[in-house]
Design a protein around this nucleic acid. Structure first.
Length: 612
DNA sequence: ATAGGGTTAG
């Protein structure tokens, strides 16, 4: 199989041959092609270009054949791709002279390989119109040439153009179909990607991986996992890339059992774990609530890159293990690795979730002072979160005023969240005023502010929010919680009665609520925004999606085993206190992933120490 | 001898 990405090394005989080319004009054309090919395979396009320069000035006759000429054009294409050129200077002078040479010698017309390399060179240089012209002027087109044109359009995000070429092709091979699936996938058109996928005969791992990643990217993870199942039924062998796509869907859904199954598949079939697959495994375990296995995979990886480290740091931070995250960061630095913007997001989240305000400030200023990473608005967002959550709401406000960015909705939302924790109605109202302009349709802030009013016993405020939601026709995002059982993700929305076992689930729920009440649980009915009576509010709280998922979990899993729940929204306060009691009353560990972080419940306590 | 699929964020 051809090596991709991870480049083949340049062998000594190629280096020796290169030396001969430099010294003598008598070298033969065969040598030229083999040396350039070696450099291109080794992802050393500039070396290939060096060979080419030497030939053009000292031994141009060696280019007078279709093999050398097409490889020379490929060298230009690869170096143009390696050094992104701005449009104004994008006509590669070398490439243009090769083009002229190809026309004059007749190879551009006579040889389809030369023609293909020409199209590709212009495509890689960002000159789509020149690529298209070279394509249109081709005296003859084969599948290969068309595929290069398809890929050129797809890489520019011009999938409609690609489609026109695709529709005009007399013959199409698997690569043509796969390119179109990918093209629709990256343009976000999952439906069209699926149409092409369905029309593809004899799909290979590329086809399946493209389609699975299309679903994963579109946050349609359930369908991604369904397709992974079908792929194995179809008997197509997955590779590294397939599994990375599948794991990202598992991460999204919190599907630990399926993710672990993929991991076992990797080990059983001795699939080579490259950095990306390793990172995907680390990320999957962390996002599915199994931080121990995440670290185990991390430690076992022989080669790690900045994404691997960042992913692990973020994982630890989200599990509330801020100190571990920070010591991992130190370890990374002491190994001489350069952190990036995302690494610092992880570092700042670590500080935020543990409440390390002064450390957070120190890390924030070290970004530009020591590590040469300019803070972006996201980092200011983390700082606002850090300060606000720790109770420094005024200081957070100061930071927003002084930062070199126009504050966005994320920033104000973080401040609003802080106001909920620290009961600051005044600043909450100011944040809300901004949010109503910047992100008027998101329901979350209205709910937050209403909760803040409820805390302050400002019932006219609560009523006002309720009215606003109705008047502005704000669509509430329904809370969804899922739990895995027998390798299937079971998802619940509030008040869900669609599950086949809903009768048993509601019976368990009723028993659960009774036992909680005996243990001192009091429903926080003031959190309910619907205009209904007290009893109905209690019922609405009891039927929150996470409680349904837990009832299902209690019903289906052996005593004392850990329940893992994944929720799409921020943890609800009522559920948070209820789950603490559940962990005590039922003697269970529960790991709940909410929109922001993980909560590990055990013996009546939560790892977040009620700080989220 | 030339073409197609993948990972980290509040």
């Amino acid at each position: 199989m051809r090596a991709r990405g991870g480049a083949a090394a340049v062998r000594p005989e190629h280096l020796a041959a290169h030396a001969r080319l430099v010294k003598s004009a008598d070298a033969d054309a065969f040598l030229v092609t083999s040396v350039m090919r070696a450099y291109l395979r080794a992802s050393l396009p500039l070396q290939a270009l060096l060979v080419l320069r030497g030939l053009l000035t000292r031994a141009p006759r060696l280019l007078a054949n279709s093999f050398s000429l097409s490889l020379a054009l490929q060298a230009c294409a690869a170096s143009a791709a390696a050094i992104p050129l701005r449009a104004a200077t994008a006509t590669p002078p070398l490439g243009a002279s090769l083009h002229a040479r190809a026309l004059k010698s007749g190879f551009a017309a006579a040889d389809i390989f030369v023609r293909t390399a020409l199209v590709e060179m212009y495509a890689k240089a960002g000159r789509a119109e020149l690529a298209r012209a070279a394509f249109d002027e081709a005296p003859r087109r084969d599948v290969f040439l068309c595929n290069v044109m398809l890929a050129a359009y797809v890489s520019r995000g011009e999938v409609a153009e690609a489609r026109t070429v695709f529709d005009g092709m007399r013959d199409r091979d698997l690569v043509s179909w796969n390119t179109m699936i990918h093209g629709y996938a990256v343009s976000g058109d999952v439906g069209m990607a699926r149409e092409i996928f369905d029309g593809t005969a004899d799909r290979d791992a590329f086809s399946w991986s493209s389609m699975i990643s299309a679903y994963a990217k579109g946050r349609r993870s359930k369908e991604a996992l369904e397709l992974w199942r079908e792929m194995r039924v179809a008997g197509v062998a997955p590779d590294c890339i397939t599994m990375v796509s599948v794991l990202s869907a598992c991460s999204d859904m919190g599907a630990l059992a399926i993710g672990a199954e993929v991991h076992q598949f990797v080990e059983r079939n001795r699939v080579e774990v490259d950095v990306k697959l390793g990172t995907a495994l680390v990320d999957m375990y962390a996002k599915c609530g199994d931080i121990d296995n995440s670290l185990k995979v991390f430690r076992a990886m022989p080669v790690k890159d900045v994404l691997t480290w960042s992913s692990t740091i973020i994982g630890l931070a989200n599990h509330g293990l801020g100190h571990d995250a920070l010591s991992l960061f130190s370890e990374m630095i002491s190994q001489g690795l350069q952190p990036n913007e995302i690494t610092f997001i992880g570092v700042l989240i670590a500080c935020t979730h543990v409440g390390l305000v002064s450390d957070g400030k120190k890390y924030f200023s070290s970004m530009s002072d020591i590590h040469g990473v300019a803070p972006r608005i996201e980092h200011y967002g983390c700082m606002v979160d850090l300060l606000g959550r720790a109770g420094h709401v005024e200081e957070a406000m100061e930071l927003i005023r002084s930062m070199p960015f126009e504050p966005d909705a994320v920033i104000w939302r973080a401040l609003l969240g802080a106001c909920r924790i620290h009961k600051n109605v005044e600043i909450a109202e100011e944040a809300m005023a901004r949010l109503r302009v910047l992100d008027p349709l998101a329901d979350g802030h209205y709910v937050l502010l209403s909760n803040i009013y409820a805390q302050a016993n400002s019932w006219e405020g609560v009523a006002e929010m309720r009215k606003t939601i109705r008047r502005e026709n704000i669509q509430r995002v329904p809370g969804r919680s899922s739990i895995e059982w027998e390798n299937t993700v079971h998802e619940f929305v509030s008040g869900d009665r669609s599950h086949p076992r809903f009768g048993e689930i509601y019976k368990m729920l009723e028993e659960m609520m009774d036992r909680l009440k005996q243990a001192g649980y009091r429903p926080m009915t003031s959190l309910v925004l619907q205009d209904i009576d007290e009893e109905a509010k209690k019922q609405a709280l009891a039927e929150h999606s996470e409680k349904l998922a837990i009832a299902f979990g209690l019903l289906t899993t052996p005593a004392r085993s850990t329940l893992r729940i994944t929720k799409n929204l921020r943890a609800c306060e009522d559920c948070h206190s209820a789950i603490k009691l559940i962990s005590l009353v039922y003697d269970r560990k529960l790991v709940v992933r909410d929109r922001n972080r993980f909560h590990h419940f055990s013996e009546g306590q939560c790892s977040c120490k009620d700080y989220w």
